[in-house]
């Protein structure tokens, strides 16, 4: 291939045809109810780690997992406080996602497959 002097970066497009969402599949295996998330954002509204200091968003994490995107939300800050689950209108055990992310070995694969180019962000 001819060298044009720049490398193509990951396109700013979610290509559902090529999505690999293994982590999401793993989560759904354990928590099938997560499919019924409607992204209302109630979880993110009450999250104590969604503020000036940390930018964690439960809703965003769910969508990113579903689409097999790199996790941009600072989910590691999750303190498992259960408030997101308490307000979820779909009755989902939302915090279990973060607890699973913390334990999954699959997460390493996820981050490798979806490694973000260093020049973005």
């Amino acid at each position: 291939m001819k060298d044009f002097g720049f490398k193509p970066v990951r396109p700013n497009v979610i290509d559902l045809a090529t999505v690999q969402n293994r982590t999401w599949t793993d989560i759904l295996r354990l928590h099938p109810e997560m499919r019924s998330c409607i992204s209302c954002g109630a979880c993110a509204a009450v999250c104590p780690n969604n503020n000036e200091l940390t930018k964690m968003s439960v809703r965003r994490t769910i969508i990113e997992l579903r689409h097999g995107l790199p996790l941009t939300s600072e989910w590691q800050n999750c303190q498992m406080c259960n408030r997101c689950s308490l307000v979820c209108p779909k009755g989902l055990n939302t915090r279990s996602i973060f607890f699973r992310l913390n334990t999954f070995e699959a997460l390493n694969d996820h981050n490798q497959t979806n490694a973000e180019p260093t020049n973005r962000k």
């Binding site: 354990l30 109810e33 689950s85 607890f99």
Partner: peptide, 10 residues
Amino acid sequence: GLAVAGHERT
């Protein structure tokens, strides 16, 4: 009960 599903809690 981190693994307890919403409907079970209900």
